[in-house]
Design a protein around this nucleic acid. Structure first.
Lengths: 353, 353
DNA sequence: CTGAAAGCGCTTACAG
DNA sequence: CTGAAAGCGCTTACAG
């Protein structure tokens, strides 16, 4: 048995003494054709005997559907994206879709290469979590006819479904929280500056400062890379300033964790001597010590909405768009106050004078 | 352009004034056929003009290769598996392979369903990180002719490539470390007990205890679920014992993190009043506070070896097995001592008398 | 209810 | 160097 080639519908048909079409009808449960129980049973038995496995390639080529979607994210090792991927895959599985995982590594060329492959593989849809900016990959998706949904916040006239996160609001909430606690000098560890998801958080930071009548000190804004090590390095850089901050807002939780380490390396207590706020609310945020104050992204909600939009378009059939109301959804992040932020201590140089 | 159907090789051939075969040769760079530069250029231009994208389904159907592999893991939201997936995908990308991500959720039925789909989709290979035990899915893989590599430690005569982790050694090292520190009562938070990766760690635990002339107290062994919450609950259960442990070995880092929380909920200091050792060495282990002592699995090495074996079989062509030497690789975990473990305090009831 | 047949887009010998 | 053609395994009208 293991020496023979894989059985096909023709083999099954032959063994069951029916035509190939009958086998196909049984496999696909086509309701338009009624097959006598006796015949169906014979076919099923033949399939069993031969260990028949349908060839999804042939089916896809013929039907134009592959039951596969592509997921492009920057980095699956980041717990936030790992969670996103987990939820997406789960919903896909429940609906009979496989997901091809693509990590772009915040690299536009890689992103582009991945989209090429996904399109060549005839995926039924693509979930595109851009590394930021308008890329070649995004252009291809835009020009093509494969349904796709973006998780970016690039609202420049997208002609597709998009789930947007209000990053600016997130940046505002984080900063506002620290201002409310009495912090005056608030550091900022950003993501790679070319990405819109970074600049938007930064806009929120600035807005909160302005609203409170504070000026923005550019030396307090240091770039990170969305990774732990980058957060640590950024915190150490901030602590070398003549007037270091008493609180730091890191643009994601991973960097916030690194910032905590950086503070400790410097001998500072968190939060007593250094408040830290993150962004994402990864599951580990509340397992840290101290637990991490952060801006929560509604991960499962994001995944749910994205898949609803995408599968709506995919299953609606070619050219039938999803209900207009679902095409653009803005999800709000929210502040989750935990133990890593508190009012500045009296001895803290960064405290309100 | 967006209203037309996707261009095919026939369209390109027509526009370039050549036969379809020529287009195919250009696309695949078949060295056996020499195409004049002028002709090649015309074809390339026509492809550009029409926005030609090869149909990987047709190619796969014809050639028998899909340049796609399947990855079955229990849970991508677990940082350990997220890392594994990340490395696998990366190596796949470098070699021109896409990866279909499948989460089994420690559920044998789901595992089985995923393998069915992967086989139907004609993947070139499967990486199978079993949830444990001999499952239907594993049987199908064994019977089929699709190359596959297992990450399990089920050595019961596997006729396939396998990368094994010496979990027993890991369990031994963790326990031995705690014994060496002077702990007498060492708790154990296991994984789901039906899985061999759990029982093997437990064997190591027992062995270390026996070797030190200690008996195994079954009340100190509590089951976990490989998740943070489960670790916390297990720790709380351990602390309710009449004779609670002074140290705990959790079977993965996620549960170790939960155990830390559980200890804190109970008002215990880690490590002064409760030592904790994990397993995996996820990137966050050294970012925790205190940093986590754990048994490190060589994640990147695991991914590298798995892919080397799998791609060797895939690219070696049907029926040509990889070099025998690569077919079974046992990787050793190692102890990484950090700050979450120390000698028991004098006031600690679990300390050596 | 059942069968013969076209065709999805490609690769690959096989002739010229 | 170039073209005509078979065939990968399936789905789906179309006749009987």
């Amino acid at each position: 048995m293991s020496s023979k080639a894989r059985a096909t519908q023709i083999d099954v048909a032959r063994l069951a003494g029916v035509s190939q079409a009958m086998v196909s009808y049984v496999v696909n449960g086509n309701g338009a054709v009624k097959i006598p129980d006796e015949t169906r049973k014979r076919i099923l038995e033949a399939m069993q005997t031969l260990g028949y496995v349908p060839n999804a390639l042939a089916r896809g080529l013929r039907s134009g559907r592959t039951k596969t979607i592509g997921l492009v994210i920057p980095d699956n090792a980041n717990p936030f994206f790992a969670e996103v991927a987990r939820f997406i895959e789960n919903i896909g599985f429940e609906n009979g879709f496989s997901v091809i995982l693509c990590n772009s590594d915040y690299d536009l060329d890689k992103e582009n290469a991945h989209v090429d492959v996904l399109l060549a593989k005839q995926v039924d849809g693509v979930i595109f979590c851009s590394s930021g900016g308008t890329s070649e990959a995004q252009q291809k998706l835009r020009d093509g006819k494969t349904p796709w949904v973006t998780l970016d916040h690039d609202i420049s006239g997208l002609q597709t479904g998009s789930v947007l996160i209000d990053y600016e609001l997130g940046g505002y909430l984080a900063t506002r929280h620290l201002l409310d606690l009495g912090h005056d000098r608030i550091g900022c560890i950003t993501g790679p500056t070319q990405f819109s998801s970074s600049t938007e958080r930064l806009d929120g930071y600035r807005q909160a400062l302005h609203e409170a009548g504070r000026s923005v000190d550019p030396t307090l804004i240091v770039p990170g890379d969305f990774r732990i090590r980058g957060g640590e390095a950024a915190m150490l850089a901030l602590l070398k300033l003549d007037h270091p901050p008493s609180a730091v807002f890191a643009f994601n939780d991973l960097m916030a964790i690194g910032a905590m380490q950086g503070a400790r390396i410097h001998g500072l207590q968190v939060p007593a001597e250094m408040s830290i706020v993150g962004f994402d609310d990864i599951p580990l945020a509340e397992a840290l010590h101290p637990t991490l104050t952060t801006i929560a992204q509604p991960i499962s909600e994001i995944a749910r909405v994205v898949m609803m939009i995408l599968l709506g378009q995919v299953q609606g059939g070619a050219g039938v768009p999803a209900p207009k109301a679902f095409n653009r959804v803005v999800l709000k992040p929210s502040l989750v106050v935990r133990a890593s932020s508190c009012a500045p201590g009296p001895s803290n140089p960064g405290a309100t004078g």
